[in-house]
Design a protein around this nucleic acid. Structure first.
Lengths: 187, 187
DNA sequence: TGTACATCAGTGAACGCGCGTTCACTGATGTAC
DNA sequence: TGTACATCAGTGAACGCGCGTTCACTGATGTAC
């Protein structure tokens, strides 16, 4: 097996990406160092060559999850449509970590919470910019962004709870339409 | 100590209420049977005289948490104001279990998810009724209720993540004002 | 009302298990000559 | 280019711990006479 220094960076990356997916699918608490290492074909002992502790890994994995689920800067309409889509709802492991992990982060330790805090603010800024591109004063754009982000995160999380596919779809559709109506320039 | 049959019902109730609070504060995964029993001044072995398993307790505790955080049927304005208040944000242990546990429930087993599903629908119905009291057709009321519930749940969860008190307050205020504007009859 | 006895709520030791973490080790990598 | 050696990525046994669950038990409750 690989023991080169180049391999090491690769291993770290694979561990981190797997962790980023697993926490979004199963929650922060459910992540097990043993299972995680097994899932990237390594033994558990090697973990501590890459991370100082499980707790450190969690903060880094959350950062990674939030970074790669960050929506590309886009205009408001496409952003809302893609966020509140069935495909996003059905793939939490690669989707927005705010929607899957906000409550987990709120009750986690300081370092994890700081990461989530920063990315929530980042998301609000992106949405505010998309809205400010046309029409609004900055102040109004921030308030509207807070509303849009709340509704998007809430709707996605709740759509994953609803068992009846029709109701789950209705949740996404109702919020999508409501938010699109906020932005007069939405196509 | 009490060994009467009357005491038993009381013990069960105390265990359940404690569990309902603990899961809202620390998440479903974090609940430990040992710690829970210790927190109600009983020994861990006695747990199985009241519940078949930890998993069974979780479903019952979630039901209990959702039931006692159920907002009284009220008109829309006061409901929104109390839901999106600082005091609600600052006491998750006695607050809405949807906001603290929706993602946890989405990845939990069938029985837990069913409980959450049912109460989300219940919440939507209550809000739809509050909105339908004045003005709207039922269809429109349901869609507006889906929007209001998403935004309330999302805003409460996110306000608990934001570290800066001003930003956390701004989150609550922006969504509160947006939702109150939806209902022309709000005082 | 008082005694004898069955019930059963709650106790606490014991179980097997998986956890996070440590550490002496192996053997491929990659450098020095 | 070929050999000798240091490095260090990854291995896997071992640690102490808390978990969910079981079970033989204790002793207060409450019933029968």
């Amino acid at each position: 097996m690989g023991h080169s220094q180049a391999d090491k960076a690769g291993s770290r990356e694979r561990i981190l990406k797997q962790a980023a997916q697993q926490i979004r699918e199963a929650g922060l608490e459910s992540l097990s160092v043993n299972k995680l290492m097994r899932s990237v074909d390594l033994t558990h002992g090697g973990f501590y060559g890459h991370f100082a502790s499980r707790s450190d890994l969690l903060a880094e994995a959350l950062e990674s999850a939030l970074a790669d689920s960050q929506l590309k800067a886009r205009s408001f309409g496409p952003m809302v449509r893609s966020y509140l889509s069935r495909s996003h709802r059905d793939s939490p492991g690669t989707g927005c970590a705010i929607a899957s992990l906000a409550p987990d982060a709120a009750r986690a330790d300081e370092s994890v919470r700081e990461v989530m805090d920063r990315h929530v603010e980042g998301f609000v800024t992106i949405v505010a910019n998309a809205l400010a591109l046309h029409e609004m004063a900055d102040e109004g754009a921030d308030d509207e962004a807070l509303v849009a982000v709340s509704a998007m995160v809430g709707a996605l999380a709740l759509s994953r709870v609803l068992t009846d596919p029709k109701r789950s779809d209705a949740m996404l559709r109702a919020v999508r339409e409501h938010l699109l109506a906020l932005d007069p320039q939405a196509e």
